[in-house]
Design a binder for these strands. Structure first.
Lengths: 329, 329
DNA sequence: ATGAAAGCGCTAACAC
DNA sequence: GTGTTAGCGCTTTCAT
């Protein structure tokens, strides 16, 4: 495995010149450039990122913090991040916390140890204090889930408004007893989405029934399914369900189907995110579309700019209500 | 941001001693160890991986090559890889080729440039020649999809046998007209799974109907759905469908449902992989369970051993037929 | 048990 | 336009 010295020797030039050729600097004569390129080819030389990264004190790695890889919502966002990262010669370190604070620490250490140049945090369960502290010394962007107090730039949607629209849609098509499958209200998005739910009910003078509000520890099929079991056991069964995640909604759908009930005739269902799966269920799922890919692209641009030392501003992106079979007829 | 020199100065020792403390070497006196640890704390010192990695000529990064992040099959495998990687202080660089050879080149370069210590390749579309060549100089393991000729160690399942069992199951419950939704036969697993399909038919003296064999460019819901459309249009419509991926099977399921037909009464469906979502469909999906997590763990262990310079041996893992609603009754 | 010093592979400031 | 050289932060050999 040749290094830059050997290339220089082979080409009969200095290492500086080789470096210049490597980095496409224009101050090199065509003649010497060719000599160098020949030497590179002859020796099968590949510049080492290890040396370059140390010298430039950068890793060209972006760390993405997510709770779990199993929610397609994150995957779509990651795709967006990826597209920007690749074009800017960055690589992505995907870090799942699995809601485990220990893991979080390991990943925070990675940026402290210069293994990563910055962080895009999408983990609602992240320790906000630690993140804020880390952000004093390292570039960090919040994506989707955020804390305003942290002062860390974020890109997200208006969760309250989105939730409000989803529930309003259910009310408009005639539902008055609407259950909410929310995640843990320790997360901001959960609180915001609940606010939207309440707002819609209030606006239509519908009572807020505490028995209709459920919380799940995590977002996943099984949590939605389990919760739906409870909902079906309610004496005064709701006629509609709004779940704050498509995964929860799909689990709920499954449970309703399994009990021989019909969606939307017996119970209407609305989800959140518009993951691909949500169009493969039977019936297809009405949901709030988040601009996931775009969100990822923006988050990546923000982070890279932050790494460069530029100022970046937070953004709120648009969402959209997508009406499908689970609330039709 | 302090470096090792400043810590040494602060502690009144040499950098060598600080390094020894950092790496937990036992030759350091308790007294000096404490001095060093105090200095580290006082200066908020964090050792730089950049320096360490250059010195050790390693990146402690494992590159995982997959076609796309959107197939949950890969995610489960990745989880397994991750569990081993974390415990061994490695990090994972997730690389999607999106079946784009250009991307593949970028990722191969990453290991040439020492940005990654080795590769776990799960991409069926990988250029086998290039991979073989790369494997001469760099540690590589093949996971799930493989080429024997390459001489690169692999971990996988017996695809032919798995496919054979799936189709045999359909035959056993009375089906004689069984369609196959296969992926492109340029991939080994596609050829193997077709072999299993053929073997089962032959064994039961059923004719091999070319019109019942379909190929999709990629694995994804939409491909399954589109293909099912074609199958439903067949004059002599099959009574069962075997798809070589759960994603395809779920897309097919969707299309059957949308046409008002019943699974399994009108058409039975069998998938492959046993991704989580296969249990959330209506009806639930009969499928071949692959030991994805285990496969990931083994691949990671193999790669790390290979990086250490040890010899590693290929492995074939067990699979299992999981019978659910889509072939019941 | 500890220190001095070399060197991993690269870039960039400076000199010519 | 090209070369010399210092140095990024670390580990490790060789002395002592």
């Amino acid at each position: 495995m040749a290094n830059i010295q050997q290339v220089a020797k082979q080409a009969g030039v200095s290492v500086a010149t080789v470096s210049r050729v490597l980095n496409g600097q224009s101050t090199v004569t065509l003649k010497t450039r060719i000599k160098v390129e020949d030497a590179i080819k002859k020796l099968n030389y590949e510049p080492s990122m290890l040396g370059r990264n140390l010298r430039n004190s950068e890793s060209r790695i972006l760390l993405i913090l997510i709770p779990t890889i199993f929610n397609p919502f994150y995957l779509e966002v990651i795709k967006g991040i990826e597209s920007i990262a690749i074009s800017q010669n960055y690589n992505i370190l995907l870090c799942e916390t699995d809601s485990n604070p220990e893991r979080e620490n390991i990943y925070f250490d990675l940026v402290r140890k210069k293994m990563a140049d910055g962080i895009i945090s999408m983990d609602p369960a992240v320790n906000a204090d630690k993140l804020t502290k880390l952000a004093e010394k390292h570039p960090i962007i919040q994506c989707s889930e955020y804390s305003v107090d942290s002062g860390i730039p974020y890109v997200t949607i208006d969760n309250e408004e989105a939730s409000y629209r989803a529930v309003k849609h259910l009310i408009k098509i005639g539902h008055e007893k609407i259950a909410l499958i929310n995640s843990d209200e320790k997360y901001l998005y959960a609180r915001e989405r609940k606010m939207g739910y309440q707002k819609a009910l209030e606006e239509h003078h519908l009572p807020l029934n505490k028995d209709y509000i459920f919380h799940t520890e995590q977002l996943g099929f099984d949590y939605g399914q389990q919760t739906m079991k409870k909902i079906l056991n309610l004496k005064d069964r709701p006629t509609a369900v709004f779940a704050v995640s498509d995964l929860l909604a799909i689990g709920a759908l499954k449970e309703i189907n399994s009990n021989g009930l019909h969606v939307p005739k017996d119970i209407a269902v609305v989800g959140f995110d518009k993951i691909d799966f949500s169009n493969m269920t039977n019936p297809t799922l009405t949901t709030i579309a988040q601009p996931m890919y775009k969100m990822g692209k923006i988050a990546a641009k923000m982070l890279i700019n932050k790494i460069k030392g530029e100022e970046v501003e937070s953004m709120i992106l648009n969402h959209e209500l997508v009406i499908r079979e689970s609330t039709l007829g």
